[in-house]
Amino acid sequence: MLIAYWIVAGLLAVFYLYSGGMKILRSKDALRPMMAWVDDMPLAAVRAIGAIEVLGALGLVVPPLTGVAPWLALAAAVGLVAVQVGAGILHLSRREPVWMNLALAAVAGALVWLATIWL
């Protein structure tokens, strides 16, 4: 179970560090080709979503690694499920595909279960 947690958490953390980092650092013009929804949101909201994703990624890895507040890994996994639920709702409202949101929510949901090993 511990090995499974680290594999899934590591992969999810890399994804969210990249995705969130792009939302924090890039302009709307640079994000638009891969994230058309940025036109419908203020830049501050896009940056906030990016910050939430980066914090979620760090929350999956840092607390269990250091042993300080390991319950934060469970909270981070739950938060990332919530991020994908919100993203799925946004994409559905724009009539866009939601397969990636469903897949990421499922992986983060599995990580919720795997994170219970730290509690």
Rank of each mutant, 00 (worst) to 15 (best):
G10N: 06
L43G: 00
A77N: 04
L92R: 15
V61I: 15
A36M: 06
M1R: 09
W71A: 12
L92I: 05
S93N: 15
I89F: 09
M41H: 14
L60Y: 04
R94P: 00
R26H: 08
V112C: 15
F15L: 13
A76C: 11
V107L: 14
L72N: 02
F15E: 02
R47Y: 07
R94L: 14
V107W: 05
G21Q: 08
P33C: 08
V85M: 12
M100G: 00
S19W: 02
L90I: 08
V54I: 13
A110F: 08
R32T: 10
R26G: 00
V62M: 06
A30D: 14
V14T: 09
I3L: 14
H91S: 00
I24Y: 06
L90G: 00
P42R: 13
A30G: 01
L111F: 03
G10Q: 06
W113K: 00
P64Y: 02
G109S: 15
P63L: 09
G21P: 07
W6F: 05
A115T: 09
A82F: 09
V112Q: 03
W6M: 07
V81W: 03
P97V: 13
V81R: 01
F15N: 08
L72K: 05
F15K: 08
G50W: 03
N101W: 05
M35Y: 12
G10E: 06
I24Q: 08
V38Q: 01
T66L: 11
I24L: 15
V107I: 15
V46R: 00
V46M: 03
A82M: 14
A87H: 03
V54T: 07
I89L: 13
L55P: 01
I89Q: 11
D39M: 09
I52T: 10
A77C: 08
L12S: 03
